[in-house]
Amino acid sequence: MKYLIFAYALITYALFGVVFVWIAAFLHNVGDLRGPASRPAVDAALINLALILLFGVVHSVMARPAFKRVWTRIIPPAAERATYVLQSSLLLGLIIWQWQPIPAVIWQVEGPAVWIFFAASALGAVIILVATFLLGHFEFVGLSQAWHNLRGTPTPPATFRTPMLYRIVRHPLQFGLLIIMVATPVMTLGHLIFVLAMALYIAIGLRFEERALLREFGAAYAAYQRDVPMLIPNPFRRSRGSVRGAP
């Protein structure tokens, strides 16, 4: 069973990597990935919002401690995080696969200026990857838990740290996501709906996550909240944060 859990975690990690690249290609419509419009705009918007709602509800429910306590009575605790990553990857893949294009153009940048958008998008991707590695990339994707289970050693408990990016913004991963979503030289109405719906989900999801972190880490996290912006960095604000919970 231990080897199966570790193999399962490896497979989910590989799928996560594929979907990460796929979503980046989707957002930039590489090779006309989204295709032409096939439905009336209102119908397309409703389908797209339903897809994002499905992702948001499942993603949020599975992240709640109460759900995890019940869920880990059904599946091995060492596979819980990998399963969370799996459902995220599958539902993001479903969004890309079933997305209904609404190609009305909001803005379109051409010429050398497009490289500014591509550079910003690349920066967002780097911020996301760096943010996961700063707090334990392999724990974030569920490999660390499966590895400790394979070796028969306990998974280290969550600790408070604020390395590098976490001294600038409390949630750099989500900040990077926002950059990737917005940094496109061609913004269509369909893309804008994706951005606004996902941004709303991120804002709501972070409120729940922050409540959980406050319950877990108490006054230390409350001090961190006062000192460091939640989502958008403030370059004029001095950060004194020193703690942060592991993902």
Rank of each mutant, 00 (worst) to 15 (best):
Q225E: 13
R161M: 14
L173Y: 12
I106W: 00
L196W: 05
V141M: 00
L90I: 11
R73H: 14
L123M: 11
S144V: 01
G205L: 11
Q100P: 08
F175D: 07
P77L: 09
L15G: 10
L165V: 02
A7E: 04
L213S: 06
G56A: 15
Q100R: 12
V141W: 04
Y13R: 07
R215P: 05
I168T: 10
Y224A: 15
F117N: 08
M164E: 13
V70R: 13
W99N: 06
A79W: 07
I179A: 01
F6Q: 00
S38T: 15
P103E: 10
W115D: 05
A246M: 08
V85T: 14
V70H: 11
R64E: 12
I5V: 15
L92S: 06
A63I: 03
N48A: 10
L46W: 02
V21W: 11
G218N: 09
Y224R: 12
A44K: 02
I106R: 11
G142P: 03
A45Q: 08
L143D: 09
T159Y: 04
L214N: 05
T72D: 07
W22K: 14
G176N: 00
P40R: 09
L177I: 11
F140C: 02
L27K: 03
H148I: 01
I232T: 05
H59L: 13
V114L: 01
Q100D: 10
A37K: 03
